[in-house]
Every structure is written in C-alpha cells, then in structure tokens.
Simulated assay, not measured.
Amino acid sequence: MAQFEKRGDKWRFRITYKDDQGKRRIYSKSGFRTKPEASAAAKKAEADIKQTVKRDNNILFMAYIDQYIEIYRKGKVASNTLDADMYAKSHLDKFYTDKFLKDVTPTLHQEMINDLITNEFSLSTIKKVNGLVHRACEKARRDGLIIFNPAEFIEYDIRKIKKKEKLQYMPTDKIKPFLDLVRKRDVMQYFLLKLILETGMRIGEACALTFEDIDRANQLIHVTKSYDQKKDELGPTKTGNERSIYITKNQSNELFKLLQIHNANKIVNADVYHNKYKFIFVNEFGTPIPRSTIYNTMMHCSEKVLGKGNRLSAHKLRHTHATIMHESGVSMRDIQERLGHKDEATTRNIYTHFTDKTKREAFDKLEEYLKNIY
C-alpha cells in the first residue's frame, strides 16, 4: 500500500515491498503537483513491481555496464563519446566492483556520487558518470532486471563540487624555457610540440602529418587527417573539414631538418626501421611517438617551468596558440579557420577568456576615448 506525503507544494509517494529474496525494499518518487497525480503514478509503480520478473538475480552491476557499452555504444557512437563512457566506467569500477545490479539502490548510488564530490571531481565528470549509469539502468529496467533506475533522482551539492578551471595556456615568457627543456629531453618531441604551439593543430592532426603534407614553396601545411593511436587508425579531422595552415619560414626550415633526421635514421636502423604511415613524428625506428610519452613530457616540462602543481597538456599548447593570435590582433574569424572549428561561434564559446594584457589594452583604449568626451 502506497503512502503519500506533501513536501512543500509537491507530493511524494512511498511504496514498501519485499523483493524475491524476502528483503524489505522501499521505492519512492516525488515532484507531483497533486495527490491524485501521485496516486495514479503509485498504482502504476505497484503494478510494475508485481509484474516485474527478474531474469538474472546475480548479474554483477559492472558486468551489465560492460554489456550495455558493448551492445548499445560500440560502433554506434563516435570514438570520443565511447572514450567518455570508458572514462566514466573507470570511476564506477572503484565503487561497484563486487555489487550486484539488483542491489544498486538510489541511496547507494548517491553515496557513490557523494564520494566523487568529496574527491573534488568536476561537475562535468560527475554528470558523465551518472549519465552512463542512468542510460544503462534504463535498459536494465526495460529488460525487467530492476524495478527503478537508481540514477534518476541524483542530487549534486554544487557548493562542494570543484569548479571548472579557467582555460589554461603557456605564458609567452615561459614558451622558450619550456621548449628548451623539451629539446633536452627528446628532440623529436621538441619539433612536435613547437609545431603545435606555432600552428594550433590538434595533437592527432600533428601526429598524422607526412612530408607530403608540407608545401615548402608556399609555406603551407595541409591538414587532411588525424591519427588515433589507440586504434592505430587514420581518420578525418575532428570536424571532418580539411584546411591549410601558413607556417613561418623558420618552421618550414625546421621541418626540412626533420627530413634529414629521418633519412639518417633509415640508414642507421635499416634492418629494423619501419614507418608504416610515413609519419613525420616518429622515433629512430619509425614508430609513432606514444601519446603516454608526450603526456609525461608535457607534465614534467610544464611543471618545471610553471612551478609545482601547474601542469599543462599538449592540448593546452593549442589554446596557447589561440591566445597568442588573439593578443596579436588576429580576428576571431581567422582564428576559427586556423584552428579548424566548424564555425566562429564555436571559437567564441571556447575562447571566452581574455588575458590580463588584452583586458588592460581594451581599458586603455576606452580611457583614451573618454578623455575626448569629458
């Protein structure tokens, strides 16, 4: 028998029942405008509880998450969307390793969310985790494995959630010291990261470059593809659009130096050298530079230059390039085309920040103008 309670100006129903193991369970739902509306929903819920047949009482929660990803996500969503699911799943693994699907209650799942909040994960990450659970459990509910979705009424205490950090970039006076450190660590990574700084290319686009993409006569790089190292596959750019980027004469000469290094490595390591895709950025044996190696280099060198706790990813070098362009007076439209965004609005939404330098310059212009008025 359902019980009803008015909370503020909304109604809630509460149903107490025993599951197939004889354990006492409670199912409640709130947000109804009137008691008759809550009563109608309660009757339907009671009917669902009575009619539900659990076909597998012992399926592990994480096994069902894996099954959901395999059936409904792999091959049906974009690779970056699937990566987001796998990232979310990694957080669930730590909490639900030995839990059965039938035992994951709204309260238990709220505890899991609270744990993420306590550990200062961003709201975006927490919502990705809950989103995966909600989608998977909705399938489980329709399959008759569970009665209600534990992720449906999750509460986020925004006062405790880590706020999203402001867009980060490498200050211009730190760029040379940073690159000098990278060069001492690995010369090939130096050329790669310097290129990203000077062009704003995505890491996957830069790693997919071949010497055929370089037009030295016109000082252009043709960006036509991206490399997915996890799958060892070449694919289109993130937006699917190809573009050409102007480069400095100095950058053109440095890329030519790389060609000489490649030729030397082919001779020295002739028996073992194999550059499958003819990439520019490979090690002495022709193997693409591992993303993990690039990540470690970025973490180490950026912290050395910026100070303890200040680390930048390779993608932040793309942000640095955009910031330099903005500070040098390049239009938003030209920044958009160089970075390969779909439209100018995307660029504006991502780069809403202004550096202290441009803020000061904008105010100085206003101050000068106001002098002519007053």
Rank of each mutant, 00 (worst) to 15 (best):
N57P: 00
D343H: 02
T52Y: 05
F153W: 03
V272D: 13
L167C: 02
R202I: 06
T355A: 11
A270L: 11
T355S: 06
R142T: 10
Q229T: 02
T323C: 08
N269Y: 12
E303R: 00
G22V: 06
L259K: 11
E337R: 06
D364G: 00
V330Q: 03
R185T: 13
D20S: 14
L82F: 05
L339M: 09
Y277H: 13
K184L: 15
E111W: 09
K127P: 14
I15C: 05
K89E: 10
I245A: 01
K164L: 03
E198C: 11
Y68P: 14
G286S: 12
K249V: 01
I214G: 06
K162M: 03
H262S: 07
F95Q: 15
K230M: 10
K23C: 02
N349L: 14
I161Y: 07
V223G: 07
K238C: 09
F100R: 05
I26M: 12
T16M: 14
A42G: 00
K35N: 08
H315G: 01
R141C: 15
A217K: 06
F363Y: 07
C207A: 13
T358Q: 07
T239Y: 08
N57V: 03
I71F: 10
R24C: 10
Y156M: 09
G8D: 04
K99E: 08
K94R: 08
L306K: 01
D98R: 07
A140Y: 12
H222V: 03
A2R: 00
Y227S: 06
R202L: 09
S292G: 02
H262K: 09
H274F: 15
A78E: 14
F354M: 12
A151V: 05
N372H: 00
N149C: 04
K44N: 02
H315D: 01
V53L: 05
Y72C: 08
A264P: 01
E111H: 03
T293K: 13
K194D: 15
K278L: 09
R12A: 07
S30T: 11
I247R: 04
E111P: 00
R202F: 02
M188V: 01
T248I: 02
T355R: 08
S39P: 00
N283R: 08
I373M: 07
E205M: 05
F256Q: 14
D56W: 00
L167T: 14
F4E: 06
V182P: 03
E138M: 13
D83L: 05
S39E: 15
H109V: 03
S124E: 10
I267Y: 01
R360H: 12
D228Q: 12
A264F: 04
I350W: 11
N119K: 12
V187W: 05
I247T: 09
H262E: 11
K163I: 07
V182A: 07
A45D: 01
F279M: 15
L195C: 05
D180K: 06
K225S: 04
Y351T: 02
I26V: 10
T287K: 06
